[in-house]
Write a protein that binds this DNA or RNA. Structure first.
Length: 267
DNA sequence: TTCCAGGCGTATC
DNA sequence: GATACGCATGGA
């Protein structure tokens, strides 16, 4: 990880990063694009403005301590994505996907924030998900804690316009606030057990659980399969996804998901 | 108007 | 365990 502090801003040098590939592709829902390669957003209650492309980025509205404590982890700067892509590129489909969008990384989000976000993602589109989460955090003036949401009701959450997912969020908040679902324990335990634990929450099925385990807990063997990935698996991996990538197949999934979606749109 | 959006819970077999 | 169906909301 290479960076410097310049008149209060952080200058980050990172070749394996493009903001459009990580902040605007359905991994995180709290970023707003305010210009070319220019975003404002937050992780929990820590704000950030970030801009840049081609290996050099400026991080504003932050400081070195926060950068090291929050953003280095968030952008997974400790992982060598060139090396990962070299490995993936042994597979022809993954090679194409990696070449298609080389700026993809796994965003390692806060676990509670990821849980809330992906519960709202169920049978929903990215624009609406962002709107719901934006209304939620604006309502409290910060990203609400499990306890703050747990005392709400479907009616009092009506302002979110989140539809049937309001009940899911209440169940998640209640179980996390009471300790019935222990997120720290989810972090410590292995992938299979962690998935089971998360799926005790209403509105958390296999796909949402995998998204949360991948982004919120950094469990890179979590492999979210939605309609797009189903198509990828049927088309390119009829005999199953290569076992060689099991440990980081969740990151491979990010490249494939982006590839199949944008390729279809002709981007 | 109808269809769909990074699914899930429930009923039914 | 597999499969069909309804579900709130809003944009295309």
């Amino acid at each position: 990880m290479e960076y410097k502090v310049s008149s209060g801003d952080i200058i980050l040098y990172e070749n394996d990063l493009e903001l459009d590939d990580v902040l605007d592709t359905g991994q995180a829902f709290r970023w707003n694009k305010i210009g070319d390669n220019h975003y404002v957003g937050a992780s929990l209650d820590t704000p950030l403005e970030i801009m840049g492309t081609g290996g050099e980025f400026i991080l504003k509205n932050t400081d070195e301590e926060t950068f090291l404590k929050v953003w280095a982890g968030y952008f997974d700067l400790g992982t060598d994505y060139s090396e990962l892509r070299n490995e993936y590129s042994k597979d022809p489909t993954l090679r194409s996907a990696c070449e298609f969008s080389g700026g993809i990384r796994l965003l390692r989000q806060d676990s509670w924030e990821a849980l809330v976000s992906f519960i709202f993602s169920s049978n929903n589109n990215i624009t609406r998900i962002k709107g719901i989460i934006s209304r939620l955090s604006e309502h409290y003036g910060h990203f609400p804690t499990p306890k703050e949401i747990a005392v709400e009701s479907p009616e009092s959450l009506g302002y979110l316009r989140s539809g049937f997912r309001a009940g899911y969020i209440l169940d998640a908040a209640g179980k996390v606030a009471s300790g019935e679902v222990d997120l720290e324990n989810v972090r410590k335990t292995d992938y299979e057990a962690a998935k089971k634990e998360l799926m005790r929450i209403k509105g958390v099925g296999p796909k949402v659980a995998d998204c949360v385990l991948l982004s919120g807990f950094g469990k890179t063997e979590a492999f979210p399969v939605d309609v797009w990935m189903k198509r990828v698996l049927e088309t390119y991996y009829p005999d199953g996804f290569p076992e060689a990538f099991y440990g980081t197949r969740g990151i491979a999934q990010l490249y494939l998901f982006n590839y199949i979606r944008k390729k279809g749109k002709g981007e």
